[in-house]
Design a protein around this nucleic acid. Sequence first.
RNA 1: GCGACAAUAGCUCAUCCGGUAGAGCGCCAGUUUCCCAAACUGGAGGUGGCGGGUUCGAGUCCCGUUUGUCGCUCCA
Length: 489
Amino acid sequence: MASEKLFANIISHAKEYGYIFQSSEIYDGLSAVYDYGQYGAQLKKNIRDAWWKSMTQLHENIVGIDAAIFMHPTTWKASGHVDNFSDPMIDNKDSKKRYRVDHLIEAHATELEDKGEADKAKELLSAMDALLAKDDFTGLKTLIETWKIKCAVSGTANWTDVRQFNLMFSTEFGAVSSDNPEDNIVYLRPETAQGIFVNFLNVQKSGRMKIPFGIAQTGKAFRNEIVARQFIFRMREFEQMEMQFFVRPGTELDWYAKWKETRMQWHIDLGLPAEKLRFHDHIKLAHYANAAVDIEFEFPFGWKELEGIHSRTDYDLRRHQEFSKKKLQYFDNDLNAEGKPYGNYIPFVVETSVGLDRLFLTILSHSYHEEEVPTAEEGKTDTRVVLRLPAKIAPIKLAVFPLTKKDGLPELAEEIMKDCMPHFHCFYEEKDAIGKRYRRQDAIGTPFCVTVDHQTKEDGTVTIRLRDTLEQHRIPAKEVQQFVLNKIA
RNA sequence: GCGACAAUAGCUCAUCCGGUAGAGCGCCAGUUUCCCAAACUGGAGGUGGCGGGUUCGAGUCCCGUUUGUCGCUCCA
């Protein structure tokens, strides 16, 4: 099937079977915001739990926290989010090319210098600085127009207005407004990482953590994307699962290499096929990193970033130390080659950061299959849609069906429900033909169904039916619970 | 942000040249059925995304808008 059509089918399946709904759909929706439905929320939680367990429970030196979405505004000055992402931009209407206004004007000034008109260049730049300082966007556009600055691509001076693109959502903090509105602005965090960095010392001290150690966190983050598209791939409100690993300076690239492999293996262990995963090294590094790689997945719409592993140096802690005037350092008692303690230093950080929603989409699109299966009628086939979700993260683990809703079969089925419900999510249904009930469970990705029939009354066995192979075999009803538990362990 | 395309029942779609909206599937209630979407009976569900305009009359033509998909662009 064409991948475009396949992706459209996945999206509509996700909606039809209670996985993902568009936000505020009855009001025509809200751009690039989505809600998780009854099965989606459970699948998402199961993925999140799997990650949390793999990080915190299975690593003695990693602990998890839950920092608030609201953070002190200075956090974002320290992190670079305020200054690096609020530059005024302008678009050329002919070439559709977007420029940072300062870059555009500076490039023109350089041209003037090359032509030996250094005085003019200086005049232009000082005019620009004055306008930038005042946030005078109208003035900046006038400046571009009076100096007849043209687009390098189209060669025209057909510009849009100067606009500022704010990456971060802001809101007002406190019920009483201040004389200076800026005093009350808080941002909705654009990444969860900073909640870890500002708590570095708290966790290290209170948990008596010894380097190397990690702090994990899952939570919502918010970005005012210029373009937000491709279903839940890029949303304005999304959830991150991040782990910041604090290491001794000089060892960061070893840890970076280790986490790179560890994280790739985790995705494979979760059930994703190795051939649809790959590394993509960053050539151009962000201001805080000395090495960075993405784990990419081959979505129906191409290879896209799923997780980032970054060696963030000591940038974040160093910046927070500067801005907060608090020492964010660690005293390392381990002995170096000369037999002396490594002493005080700001730890280096290796970050693993995976998008929970992206991982959800990865699993959903990989699990979705349309296939021909035999029907009750000899030789005939019918199309079934099945989500081959890994059993350990499927929202519903077991469906329990009485073959008919009389002759005491529902009562026997209820017993199995009672036996299993405390241990994993179960679904009970007694209406419609058995085949139809199986198909409905296929569509939501339930890996196991058991059916109670008349033989159950005689020998206590039930039919267990496997989603992926359509195989059926009989097992004692009393063993159903353990059968499923073994499969989802 | 630019461009292209799209929007009719829960889903997939139909509705001829503009003349008061229909099917299949699904869903709900029941009958029947004894292991892979069977059959039968009955039922709910639509201001045709929203707002304007043209017209005697608009789901249909035009404009705007919202949302989505795709291509550019952006992506710490």
